[in-house]
């Protein structure tokens, strides 16, 4: 079939702008997640404020984009794949904004703890977790950039790495509770949970793209 996409140039541009803006927002969040990872794994307490500060433009963009999507929904009355994309976009926005908040929460825990205890860091578990989490999120942003449905379909499985490392980290923290103290234990549980949540948001984002493209959520999640 020849593509006769002649009638709605302006609308197509609007939708593409939304997609591009989602990728941009996602990239900002991904960068902050990586920065938070470095703060944790390298104990860079002097960068905590930078991570917190970087979340402000993320929030501003989130609100701006949400309003744009809402306006298009109201004015264009989208249907079919356009509607699926815009509904997915509102959800993706939420997932991204939450992920940004989690990066902030992570560095706040590090500051409270005055740096993560070294023996655990040496175990490499925190490093592995922050890496796996950031990679999952990057992959989700890639799904948005390329509108690739396959990433969402494989996301649940891809995320098993994060779940496994989180479990290992929790076990290790529990085993060392006497050495590192209660406060560090609690902070590390939080940090582990936050990275895991970020990866979950990544999974959801990729799955929303699968829905936008195919009309169906990948099995096992909704």
């Amino acid at each position: 079939m020849e593509s006769a996409f002649d009638t709605r140039h302006h609308y197509d541009d609007e939708l593409d702008d939304i997609r591009a803006a989602l990728v941009e927002l996602g990239s900002m969040v991904a960068a902050n997640i990586r920065r938070a990872g470095v703060v944790v794994t390298e104990g860079r307490l002097n960068e905590v404020d930078a991570v917190i500060g970087a979340d402000r433009p993320i929030n501003a963009r989130y609100h701006d984009l949400e309003e744009k999507v809402f306006t298009i929904l109201a004015l264009q009355q989208p249907v079919a794949s356009d509607l699926r994309f815009l509904v997915a976009a509102t959800r993706i926005l939420y997932e991204m904004e939450r992920s940004g908040d989690l990066a902030v929460n992570i560095v706040k825990q590090v500051r409270r703890l005055d740096g993560v205890p070294t023996d655990l860091r040496l175990d490499g578990l925190v490093l592995r977790l922050s890496d796996a989490s950031a990679r999952m999120f990057d992959h989700a942003v890639e799904a948005v950039a390329t509108m690739n449905a396959a990433i969402g379909i494989g996301a649940e499985q891809e995320d098993e790495e994060t779940d496994t490392v989180t479990g290992d980290l929790f076990t290790a923290v529990t085993e060392r509770q006497d050495a590192i103290g209660l406060e560090a234990c609690v902070a590390l549980f939080y940090i582990g949970r936050f990275f895991e949540r970020i990866a979950d948001h990544g999974v959801n984002i990729a799955q929303h793209i699968t829905f936008a493209v195919t009309g169906e959520f990948p099995d096992g999640d909704g």
């Binding site: 006769a4 996409f5 009638t7 709605r8 197509d12 079919a80 794949s81």
Partner: peptide
């Protein structure tokens, strides 16, 4: 069907 999609999303011309 792509034809349905194009029609209802207003992309026909």
């Amino acid at each position: 069907h792509d034809e349905t999609e194009d029609y209802i999303t207003g992309r026909f011309g």
